[in-house]
C-alpha cells in the first residue's frame, strides 16, 4: 500500500488493509463479524489473504503468492457410547476402544487427490528460487499422481503443502474419554479437523 501511494497509482476503488483477530477458530470475532456488520464499508471485489504469503530475499520481493480459493473447514465430532463398568471386567463395547478403531481408520484414509486450475498450474508457475525446497517436498504433481496410484510408496502424512492443496484432509486433533484408571467410561469423543477441497 505504501508503494501504491508513493507511485501515485491511479485506483478505480479503495484498497483496504484489514487486520482482524479471529483467525480460523473464532471467525465470529474476526472476518465473519466484519462481513455481517461492516460489509457496506468493505464490499471487496477480491481479497489477498495472509496465507498467500510473499517471499523476500536480500531486501527484494521474489514472489507474491495469491490464493484463488480456500479449503472449507468441516470439523466433526465422533461420539461413542458404551457400557460403563469396572476396569477389572473388560467389556466388548468399550467406548474408547471402539473410538480408537474408528479414528485409526480415518487416520489411514487415503482420499483421492483432485486438482483444480490453480493446483494444476502451481508447480510450473512457481519460480524455482521462490522458496527453498523442503526435504520431503514433491512439487511435481505428476509424481504425486503416480504415488497416489501406488499406495505402497506414498507417505500418508507427508509434510508437503503441495500435496495438502490437492487432497481433502481429516486429522484427528482432539480425543477425550475416561476420568479414572479403573473405570470404564460410558462415552468417548474425538474431533476431526476436516478440510474439504473448495470445489
Amino acid at each position: 500500500m505504501l508503494t501504491l501511494k508513493r507511485l501515485n497509482v491511479p485506483l478505480d476503488r479503495d484498497v483496504i488493509f484489514l487486520a482482524e483477530s479471529g483467525e480460523e477458530g473464532q471467525v465470529e470475532w474476526g472476518i465473519q463479524y466484519m462481513v455481517e456488520n461492516h460489509w457496506s464499508e468493505i464490499q471487496a471485489e477480491f481479497a489477498i489473504a495472509e496465507a498467500g504469503n510473499a517471499v523476500r530475499k536480500g531486501g527484494k520481493e521474489r514472489s507474491v503468492n495469491v490464493m484463488t480459493a480456500e479449503k472449507s473447514a468441516y470439523p466433526v465430532q465422533l461420539l461413542v457410547k458404551g457400557t460403563a463398568g469396572h476396569g477389572s471386567v473388560p467389556l466388548p463395547d468399550n467406548a474408547i476402544g471402539r473410538l480408537s478403531q474408528a479414528v485409526a481408520r480415518v487416520y489411514q484414509w487415503q482420499p483421492p487427490m483432485r486438482l483444480n486450475d490453480t493446483t494444476e498450474r502451481t508447480s510450473s508457475a512457481s519460480p524455482p528460487s521462490a522458496r527453498p525446497p523442503k526435504p520431503h517436498a514433491t512439487t511435481d504433481f505428476s509424481t504425486l499422481r503416480n504415488q497416489q496410484k501406488s499406495r505402497s510408496t506414498i507417505r500418508l502424512h507427508e509434510p508437503n503443502p503441495q500435496l495438502h492443496a490437492a487432497k481433502p484432509l481429516s486429522p484427528p486433533n482432539m480425543f477425550a474419554g475416561g476420568y479414572r484408571v479403573n473405570v470404564i467410561p460410558s462415552t468417548a469423543t474425538a474431533t476431526l479437523d476436516i478440510r474439504a477441497l473448495p470445489d
Binding site: 471467525v27 466433526v76 474408528a102 481408520r105 480415518v106 476431526l192
Partner: peptide, 30 residues
C-alpha cells in the same frame, strides 16, 4: 459426510458437525 461414515464403518458412532465456519442464520442462531 457419507464418505466419512463409510470410512468409519461403525453405525453406532455418532457423527456431529461442529461447524465453526457456519454463517449465522435464523436456523442456527444461539
Amino acid at each position: 459426510m457419507a464418505e466419512l461414515r463409510k470410512v468409519i464403518n461403525d453405525p453406532s458412532i455418532e457423527i456431529k458437525a461442529r461447524g465453526f465456519y457456519r454463517p449465522k442464520t435464523a436456523a442456527n442462531a444461539d
